[in-house]
Amino acid sequence: MTEDTTTKGKQGVLDTIRRRPGLQTLLLIFPSLFWLVVFFVLPLLIVLVYSFLKRGPYGQIVWEFNLNNYARFLDPLYLKVFLRSFKIAGLTTLFCFLFGYPMAYWIATRSRRWRNTLLLLLMIPFWTNFLVRTYAWILILRDTGLINSALLSLGIINEPLPLFGTDLAITIGLVYGWFPDMVLPCYAAIERLDFSLVEAAQDLYANEFRSFLRVIFPLTLPGVIAGSILVFIPSLGAYVTPDLLGGAKTVMIGNVIQSQFLSVRDYPFGSAFSFVLMAIMLLATLLYFRVGARTA
């Protein structure tokens, strides 16, 4: 009899859920909603509130509303950091595209059998820890590194090239780090491309270059934009790569935020910095959706 009532009870609960679609929705989204609210929305709100407060003499938070943290961005020092970050992130995105798009095109136009193998080969290096891979670049780029010692021993240069600790080194590290994030969306877009459209363009007197410019590229642009966002945003906020390859200088936004929180202990200013970065990223993403909607 007890078994009977429990099955009835279970049945009752199920019936209630079935009759109430609102409850169903709530039950389905609850786990992710909980996660988002507790670990994302609430911390973000804390950061937002902090960004309008003041730092006390010992690094504590002083509850006094002000906009000074945002005003400090007008300081040429921080403007320079922003510009430099944009330059590095922009160059990273550009190089990722210049190397990544042809590669994605090549992979996407192989036979079906080969494509997955090639994509796997692209991913394999990224199974290694990110830090290890970035450290490897130090060994390649430093004065006594692979490139310089090779060029020196060949007699092409007399002094080691200043590679390590430069913006170039950071850009190389970032391009290497985010390369698959450009290739994969481009690949997805090119793979979906209907190649009879390319034939149609060539049939209508467009040579290879013009059919690329007028048909292939515009139709795969959403993939390029998606890839650019995926590369640009993490590059802009990058912290590990500039920290390791930038030669211990505060060069990018990520490094400023890190030093504000961990060294200077100016939580309010660090928070404001984080928010400005987020605003920029949001803008970039909105731009993507607008362009994406136009091409689709």
Binding site: D194, S196, L197, E199, A200, P218, L219
Partner: peptide, 11 residues
């Protein structure tokens, strides 16, 4: 050529 699936440029 008139293609089987028309191949009109969608953009």
């Amino acid at each position: 050529m008139v293609f089987q699936n028309y191949a009109l440029f969608p953009h």
